[in-house]
Structure formats: structure tokens, C-alpha cells
């Protein structure tokens, strides 16, 4: 479903991604762990072309992200073509990024109506169903500023799901939440994983990674240090850096 081949990225002289390769199959959940500054969030943002890459290839489904390859030559895609690619890739941000001038329901139905061309009644029905799914049916007409952080993040998940993406990216979805609100958001993500959604999750929640993910990838200083089943990487890490990181977060 998602394939990254030798992805590199630098900001000036600072190389933040040093040849990252990984693959996520349909229906799999991959958790990206690592200390801050390890490049995991940057990598996630490359997957939907919020960041451009300097080398390598990223495929989501059949699409080469950001470019069209004709023979050996790469052509940059038009912004509208990139927008089309992004429709199939949902993203949830650390700081929610809900649209503050729209109600929860309006947040969820804005893109289905304006981008996917759904009629308002159908989008509203789907939007309400999604809000119900994340446990916020009674908050549909509230503005984001009237919701708690955990509620906002669940609306953000519903908003991303409304575009019926093939894959969902989560960029530290619980890092900005009060501890007692983390559980609700993780529950929603757990349910989503059970429905067979392909998910890539940057997180510090080791418990969630152990329980939900098929693959855990540990990154440090722009490199994949260790990758494998959660039982291997989390409970029996081979590398010293993985061990040190796990000791510090557990």
C-alpha cells in the first residue's frame, strides 16, 4: 500500500532523512518510534508531499507521490494533481488543525462537498455517522474552541476519514493532549485499525504500538535503526540506541 524507497531529505546541510526504506501492506498498522529530531514526523509529512524529498521514491497505492515518471525522467506534478493524490491519504496532526471558524460537522463535510463533489445531504449523513463513530454525535454543532483537546482530535480523525482515504497518517496524535484524554483518541484509532484501515502512526505511546501495530520501526538521526514485529523490537531490542530509548520512555 505504501512503499518508501531510499527516501532522503535535507534542510540545508542538515540531513534529516538518510535513505529511509519501508513498506506497509494493505490493512497493516505501522508505528514509527524514535526520539524527537529522529526524522519520523518529517518522513510522515513526505508521504503526502507536505515536504518534498531530495532522493528516493514514495508510492502510495499505485501512485508515485509528487512526480510522474516517464522512462528515466521525473516530471513534477501540477498542484492540482498532487491535491488529487492527497485525497487518498488522510492525515491527523499533533495540534489537530481543525478549522476554527467551522463547527465539528462543517469541518468533517467541507472537503467531501468542496473537493469530492458530494451533495450536502449525503455528506452530512456521512459526516454525522463518522462523528458518531468517534463518539461525538452530540458535538456536531459545536465549534472547535468549545471542545476539549481529545474531542478535537477525534473530530480531526473523522474529518480525515470523510474523504475515504486508503491510508491514514497520524503525526503524534496524542502528544498535545492532557493525559486523561489520550485514552479516548487511542480507542478510536484502535477501532479504526480493527476495521482494516492501513495506518502509519508516529507515536510515543509504546503500549499502543505493542498492542495495535503489525510493524514497529525505530528511527534515530534520520535512519531506521530497527524494524520488525512489536514483540521483537519492543521486548527484545537488538540495538543499543533502541534499548536506551525504550528505557527512557517506559
Amino acid at each position: 500500500m505504501v512503499r518508501a524507497l531510499g527516501v532522503r531529505k535535507s534542510y540545508g546541510k542538515n540531513e534529516v532523512l538518510k535513505s529511509i526504506s519501508l513498506e506497509v501492506k494493505q490493512g497493516e498498522v505501522l508505528c514509527l518510534l524514535g526520539p524527537s529530531g529522529s526524522g519520523k514526523s518529517t518522513f510522515l509529512r513526505c508521504l503526502n508531499h507536505l515536504e518534498t524529498i531530495d532522493a528516493g521514491r514514495i508510492y502510495v497505492g499505485e501512485h508515485l507521490i509528487g512526480y510522474r515518471q516517464v522512462g528515466d525522467v521525473l516530471h513534477e506534478l501540477h498542484p492540482n494533481e498532487i491535491a488529487l493524490q492527497r485525497r487518498g491519504i488522510g492525515m491527523v496532526f499533533q495540534r489537530f488543525n481543525l478549522f476554527p471558524h467551522l463547527t465539528a460537522l462543517e469541518n468533517v463535510i467541507e472537503a467531501p462537498i468542496g473537493v469530492a463533489g458530494l451533495d450536502k445531504a449525503a455528506a452530512t449523513a456521512r459526516g454525522k455517522a463518522l462523528l458518531e463513530k468517534v463518539g461525538l454525535a452530540d458535538r456536531a454543532y459545536h465549534y472547535p474552541s468549545q471542545l476539549s483537546g481529545g474531542q478535537q482530535q477525534r473530530v480531526a480523525i473523522a474529518r480525515a476519514l470523510a474523504m475515504e482515504p486508503a491510508v491514514m497518517l497520524f503525526d503524534e496524535p496524542t502528544s498535545a493532549l492532557d493525559p486523561e484524554l489520550v485514552g479516548d483518541v487511542l480507542d478510536v484509532m484502535r477501532d479504526l485499525a480493527k476495521t482494516g484501515m492501513t495506518m502509519i502512526v508516529v507515536t510515543h505511546e509504546i503500549g499502543f504500538a505493542r498492542e495495535v501495530s503489525d510493524t514497529v520501526v525505530f528511527m534515530d538521526q534520520g535512519l531506521v535503526v530497527e524494524a520488525g514485529a512489536p514483540a521483537d523490537v519492543l521486548d527484545n531490542p537488538q540495538h543499543e540506541r533502541t534499548k536506551a530509548f525504550l528505557r527512557s520512555v517506559l
Binding site: 507536505l50 491519504i89 488522510g90 492525515m91 496532526f93 488543525n97 472537503a111 468542496g114 469530492a116
Partner: peptide, 20 residues
Amino acid sequence: GQTEAAKSLGMSGGYTMRKI
């Protein structure tokens, strides 16, 4: 973050400017 969220939903630049 507003523009990024809009982009991630597949909104075009013009649409993002007008609606978000």
C-alpha cells in the same frame, strides 16, 4: 497548520484561500 490540514484533505490552493 490550517493550510496543511486543507492540503492534506486534497483542497486546492484557491479553495483553501477562499474557504479556510
